[in-house]
Amino acid sequence: MTHIATIETVDAEASDVINEPRLWRNNGWTARVIKNEEDEGWAVEMIKDGEAEPALVGPWTMGRDKKNPKPLDVSAFQTLIKTASEVLRRHEHQLYAQLHRKLTIEADGRPILVSLDIVPDEDDPYATLSAEDADGEPLAAVRVGPNFKLSSASATAWIADEFRQPE
């Protein structure tokens, strides 16, 4: 029984792999060579499994006949996976940086780490403004609007106001 299940699993995985001149699917990614709507050439789109939109769309090389696209191959597919993965990583880092800000303020001769963490909920977006001392001990936390602007001035004012709810 175990042997049959293993064969079925391998067959299911193998059926997910596609290696065609204009379509490759493997390792959680699909590369599709498409007609470039903006000019005479071709483009390639990379879509991560489970995503509706491509992570990467870029120009694709013409074939030798200067009419049809160059076929996808292992090397090109691996390069496309690496490039698309890097695009997703940069996007995630950018989003994280937009939603989580930190800065250190000197107050009464001691450093205080002030953080703003935004929760982009569709129905009720909000942010948490928090402070901790140099040892990581929490000093305060308050809920603020998602559009609260964390700056040295706003953090200093919050600390000076003894961590009361900012207006």
Rank of each mutant, 00 (worst) to 15 (best):
M1W: 12
T2L: 02
H3A: 09
I4V: 14
E8Q: 07
E8I: 10
T9V: 04
V10P: 02
V10W: 11
D11T: 09
A12S: 08
A14W: 11
S15F: 09
N19K: 10
E20N: 07
P21L: 00
P21H: 00
R22D: 12
N26C: 05
A31M: 06
R32Q: 12
K35G: 02
D39E: 03
D39G: 12
D39Y: 09
D39P: 15
G41D: 10
G41V: 14
V44N: 00
M46R: 04
D49W: 12
G50A: 04
G50E: 00
E51I: 06
A52L: 12
P59F: 08
T61N: 03
R64Y: 15
N68M: 10
P71H: 01
A76E: 13
F77V: 01
F77W: 06
L80S: 04
I81F: 15
I81C: 07
S85K: 04
S85Y: 02
S85V: 06
L88F: 13
R89K: 11
H91K: 02
H93S: 03
Q94E: 15
A97N: 09
K102Q: 11
K102P: 02
L103Y: 10
I105Q: 01
I105D: 03
E106V: 15
E106L: 14
G109Y: 14
G109S: 05
R110L: 09
P111W: 06
S115I: 09
V119I: 12
E122M: 04
D123S: 06
Y126K: 01
A127L: 05
T128M: 03
T128V: 12
S130G: 14
S130W: 10
S130C: 09
D135L: 06
D135W: 11
L139G: 13
A140W: 03
V142Y: 15
R143D: 08
R143L: 07
P146C: 01
N147I: 03
F148G: 01
S151H: 10
S152C: 01
S154H: 06
S154C: 08
A160H: 10
A160S: 13
A160E: 15
D161H: 11
E162Q: 06
E162G: 06
P166A: 05
